[in-house]
Amino acid sequence: MFGALNFLNRTALVLMNTGLSVSLSIILYYGAFQGVPKSMDEAATLDGAPAFRAFVDVILPAVNPMTGTVIILNAMKLWNDYLLPSLVVNKNGMYTIPLKMYMFFGETNSEWELALAGLVLSMVPIIILFLLLQKQVMSSVTEGAIK
């Protein structure tokens, strides 16, 4: 269907990954928003804040730990995805890292040294992202355990 609409490569990946990632994000945020006391929203409304301003200034910072968790889970899913890009990417410069790693192996050759070096290097951005957001992830995990 995407091929008939000429939506292959970047457009198809963005649309499909957005559709697949939104469901998990909604479930996680739903649980986080349920944990925010209604009194916080009521207090902002009593102080004269419009609904959007109350959401941005009061409610959103309360679910900040879940935002870090959602970012890391979605980034790991997107970074490690092999199946979806292998179906919709057909342009040589658009291949993702898992697709490029597969190129090291053919019918007659297997370049294990290059593949393993590439895999180690491909883990570095996700590890850095986790280290940057580790505090939010740990606080969202412990927050669910306390309630």
Results as ranks from 00 to 15, higher is better:
Asn74Cys: 00
Leu13Asp: 00
Met66Glu: 01
Ser140Asn: 04
Lys100Pro: 01
Thr18Trp: 04
Ile59Gly: 09
Gly19Arg: 03
Leu5Arg: 12
Leu5Ile: 13
Leu83Gly: 07
Val56Gly: 04
Ile146His: 12
Lys135Asn: 05
Gly48Ala: 08
Gly106Leu: 14
Gly3Phe: 13
Val141Ala: 06
Ala62Leu: 09
Leu133Tyr: 10
Lys135Asp: 06
Leu84Ala: 07
Phe7Val: 13
Ala32Glu: 02
Ala75Ser: 06
Gln34Met: 08
Phe7Gln: 12
Leu114Trp: 15
Ala75Val: 07
Pro85Leu: 07
Asp57Ser: 14
Ala43Trp: 01
Ser21Cys: 07
Gly106His: 08
Met76His: 08
Met1Ile: 15
Val124Tyr: 12
Val141Gly: 02
Ala44Glu: 04
Gly35His: 09
Lys91Ser: 15
Lys38Gln: 05
Leu119Met: 15
Ala115Asn: 12
Ile59Glu: 11
Ile26Tyr: 07
Leu114Gln: 14
Thr69Val: 09
Ile72Tyr: 03
Leu60Arg: 11
Leu129Trp: 14
Asn90Asp: 05
Tyr29Thr: 03
Tyr95His: 05
Ala115Met: 15
Thr67Arg: 13
Glu111Asp: 13
Ile127Trp: 06
Thr96Trp: 03
Leu24Arg: 08
Lys100Trp: 05
Ile127Cys: 08
Ala115Val: 07
Ala54Leu: 13
Arg10Pro: 04
Leu24Tyr: 12
Lys38His: 06
Leu15Glu: 00
Ile128Ser: 15
Ala4Gly: 09
